Amino acid sequence: MPEVIFNGPEGRLEGRYHHGPTDNAPLALILHPDPNRGGTMNNKVAYNLYHLFVRRGFSVLRFNFRGVGRSQGSYDQGQGELSDAASALDWMQTINPNASACWIAGFSFGAWIGMQLLMRRPEINGFISIAPPASQHDFSFLAPCPSSGLIIHGDRDTLVPEAAVAKLAAKLASQKNIAVDYSVIEGANHFFAEHMEILTGRIDAYLDQALADDLSPAAAG
C-alpha cells in the first residue's frame, strides 16, 4: 500500500495506491466523505472499499481531497474536489494504459463527487455509491445515469433520510439500458459503524454478479 503524491489542480494530492497484478488490471478509484466533517481517505468505509477492490486484483487508488492531510489547497464545496477526482483518475490511467475496466466507489460526499465524475468520464464502467447525500445535494445531473451500479444506504441514517436515497435509486433504476441495484442495510446508521461486515459483504456479492456479467459471452458479443 505505497504512499503516492500526484499533481492536482491546486497542488499536490496525497494518496495510497495498489498496483494490480496484471498489465490489464481494472481500475478502482475510492472517494472519501466530506472533508468539512473530518472525512479522509482513512475513513473506515473508504479504507474497506480500497481493500475490497485490492483483493479482486484491481489497481486501486484512494486519496485525500484538497486541504486534507498532506494534500494541498483548501475545501471548495465540491467543485474543486470534483477536479481533484478527475486528476486522480488521470494519474491512474497514465500508469495503467491497458486497464480493462474502470470503477468508481464513493462514500457520502465522495458518492456525490463520484456520481458527478461518472457523468464526465464515459470510460467508467460501474459505480458503488454508499450513503449518497440525496437530501443535501442535487443529483438531478444524472439525466440519464450513464452506467450501472450499486447504491447502499442504512435505514437508521439520521443525516440522510433513507426515503431520499430510495427516491433517487428508483429514479435511476427506471432508466433504460442500465441497472441500478438499491440495497438497504437494516439498523445501519450513516457511518455503518456496527455493520461494516454486512456492507462489504453486500458489495462483494454485487461485484461477483456484475463482473461475471461483464465476462459473459452475451456481454462480450
Rank of each mutant, 00 (worst) to 15 (best):
G57E: 10
I152T: 00
P161H: 05
Q79K: 15
G20D: 00
L159P: 13
M119R: 14
Q209K: 15
P133E: 05
Q77S: 15
A166E: 13
G80M: 01
I104Y: 08
P26Y: 00
S83I: 13
P122G: 03
L49M: 12
F53M: 12
G11D: 07
D90H: 10
N177K: 13
Y75S: 07
L117G: 08
E123H: 07
L31R: 05
P35H: 04
K171S: 14
N43E: 00
D214R: 15
Y206L: 06
L172R: 11
L199P: 09
E186C: 11
L215G: 15
D138F: 05
R66L: 02
A85I: 14
R120S: 11
N96M: 04
L117K: 06
S183C: 15
D213A: 11
K171C: 14
V54S: 06
P97C: 11
A170F: 13
F127K: 03
Y47I: 11
S140H: 08
A169H: 08
F65S: 06
P132R: 03
F192H: 02
L159C: 13
V4S: 12
P33L: 05
A134E: 04
L199Y: 04
N24F: 01
C145M: 06
A219P: 11
E14I: 06
A173S: 11
A85G: 09
H137A: 12
F139T: 00
A212T: 09
T200D: 03
R202L: 14
A164I: 05
A220E: 09
V60Y: 03
G69C: 01
S83H: 12
S216Y: 01
G73I: 11
G20L: 04
D157H: 09
M1I: 13
N64Q: 03
F58R: 09
L82W: 09
F107C: 01
G73F: 06
S100D: 00
L61K: 07
S216F: 01
G11R: 07
L199S: 04
D214W: 14
N24V: 01
A179K: 13
K167Q: 14
L82H: 06
Y206C: 02
L199G: 07
V184P: 10
A131D: 11
G38R: 05
S71G: 03
V184W: 05
G38F: 05
G8H: 01
N48C: 05
N177F: 08
F191Q: 12
F65Q: 11
H137R: 15
L172K: 00
P21G: 04
A169S: 14
E3T: 15
T40H: 07
I151C: 04
Q72H: 10
A212Y: 04
R37G: 15
R55S: 15
D213C: 06
E14Q: 10
E3K: 15
P132Q: 05
P9T: 10
W112Q: 02
F127C: 09
E123I: 02
N189L: 00
I104V: 12
P2C: 12
G38N: 02
V68G: 07
Q209L: 13
T94S: 10
A134G: 07
L207E: 02
M115Q: 13
G149R: 07
A173W: 09
A210M: 11
R120I: 03
S108L: 00
V160A: 07
V4L: 12
E123L: 09
S135N: 01
S108G: 01
N7Q: 14
I130R: 11
Q136P: 05
P33H: 03
D214S: 15
